[in-house]
Computed example of a mutant assay.
Amino acid sequence: MIQSKHCDLCEFPKRNLKNGLTCGLTDKKPDFRGFCSDIKFSDSFKEQLTELLNQIGQIKKRKTSVYFNFGLFVVIGLLIIFGSYPHLTEYLKKAFEPEFSYSDWKYFSLILLLEFVGILLLYMGFYPFNKYKKELNKLESDKKEIELVLKNYGIEIETLTNLEKIKKRHHNKAVYN
C-alpha cells in the first residue's frame, strides 16, 4: 500500500520539494506497513469525501434521463439510417447511369441529408451517455481508493460520513442553544 494515499487523508502530512512527503508528527518519511497508528483524518478530507459522495449521488440521479435519451436518439437515428439506406443504394446505382436527372440528384441529396441526420442523432445519444459513464467511473474509482485506505483502519465511508453529520448536528444544537 502506498503511504501517500494514507497521508492524503491525514491532518499531519508535510510536503516540500526538498524532502517530498514527510509526517508532520515525526518529521520523517512515512514508514508504516498497512496502516498508520497516528493517523487523524483531516476535516478537509471529510469535506472532500462528503462532496465526492454528493457528486456521485447527483450523477446517479441523472441516470434515468441519460439512458432514456440514449435509447431514444439511438433508436430514431438507426431507424432513419436503415430506413433511408435502400433509397440511398437505389440512387447511388442511378448516379452512374447516363439518365441521372436533376430531380434524381435532389432526391439523392435529400437521402444523404437524412443519413447525416441519423448519424447526428446517434452522436447525440452516445456522447452524453459516454460522458456520464466516464464521470461516474472516475468518481467511483476515487471512492474505491478511499475505501481501500479506510479498510485498513476498519472504517467504512458511510460510518465516517455519518459521524460527521452527527458532529454537525451537535454543533448546530450547541450554537442555537
Results as ranks from 00 to 15, higher is better:
residue 23 C to W: 13
residue 23 C to G: 05
residue 24 G to I: 04
residue 25 L to K: 14
residue 27 D to F: 12
residue 28 K to Q: 10
residue 29 K to W: 02
residue 30 P to Q: 03
residue 30 P to H: 05
residue 34 G to Q: 00
residue 34 G to H: 03
residue 38 D to S: 11
residue 39 I to Q: 07
residue 41 F to D: 01
residue 42 S to N: 11
residue 43 D to G: 12
residue 43 D to N: 15
residue 45 F to Y: 14
residue 48 Q to H: 12
residue 48 Q to Y: 09
residue 49 L to W: 05
residue 50 T to F: 09
residue 51 E to M: 07
residue 51 E to A: 15
residue 53 L to T: 09
residue 53 L to H: 10
residue 54 N to D: 09
residue 54 N to Y: 12
residue 56 I to K: 09
residue 57 G to V: 02
residue 57 G to I: 03
residue 60 K to D: 11
residue 60 K to I: 01
residue 60 K to E: 15
residue 61 K to A: 09
residue 61 K to H: 11
residue 65 S to Q: 12
residue 66 V to T: 14
residue 67 Y to E: 10
residue 67 Y to C: 15
residue 68 F to W: 15
residue 69 N to A: 01
residue 70 F to N: 10
residue 71 G to H: 07
residue 71 G to D: 04
residue 71 G to C: 05
residue 71 G to N: 05
residue 72 L to V: 03
residue 73 F to S: 08
residue 75 V to N: 04
residue 76 I to E: 04
residue 76 I to T: 07
residue 77 G to D: 00
residue 77 G to W: 02
residue 78 L to T: 05
residue 79 L to C: 07
residue 80 I to E: 01
residue 80 I to K: 05
residue 83 G to T: 01
residue 84 S to H: 06
residue 85 Y to E: 04
residue 85 Y to G: 04
residue 86 P to V: 00
residue 87 H to D: 11
residue 88 L to N: 07
residue 88 L to P: 04
residue 88 L to A: 08
residue 88 L to G: 03
residue 89 T to A: 02
residue 89 T to D: 05
residue 91 Y to W: 06
residue 92 L to V: 10
residue 92 L to I: 09
residue 93 K to Q: 08
residue 93 K to W: 10
residue 94 K to F: 05
residue 94 K to R: 08
residue 94 K to T: 00
residue 97 E to P: 02
residue 100 F to C: 00
residue 101 S to P: 07
residue 104 D to F: 08
residue 105 W to N: 09
residue 106 K to D: 06
residue 107 Y to I: 09
residue 108 F to K: 04
residue 110 L to C: 02
residue 110 L to Y: 09
residue 112 L to H: 02
residue 112 L to K: 03
residue 117 V to M: 08
residue 118 G to A: 01
residue 118 G to R: 06
residue 119 I to E: 04
residue 124 M to W: 14
residue 125 G to I: 05
residue 125 G to W: 10
residue 125 G to M: 07
residue 127 Y to A: 14
residue 127 Y to N: 13
residue 128 P to S: 07
residue 133 K to Y: 14
residue 133 K to G: 04
residue 135 E to I: 07
residue 136 L to K: 15
residue 136 L to D: 11
residue 136 L to C: 14
residue 137 N to V: 08
residue 137 N to G: 03
residue 137 N to S: 15
residue 141 S to M: 13
residue 141 S to V: 01
residue 141 S to F: 12
residue 143 K to T: 01
residue 144 K to I: 10
residue 144 K to R: 13
residue 146 I to A: 02
residue 147 E to R: 06
residue 147 E to Q: 11
residue 149 V to G: 00
residue 149 V to D: 00
residue 149 V to C: 00
residue 149 V to F: 02
residue 150 L to C: 00
residue 155 I to T: 06
residue 155 I to V: 12
residue 155 I to C: 02
residue 157 I to W: 12
residue 157 I to R: 11
residue 158 E to D: 13
residue 159 T to D: 12
residue 159 T to M: 13
residue 159 T to Q: 15
residue 160 L to D: 05
residue 161 T to A: 10
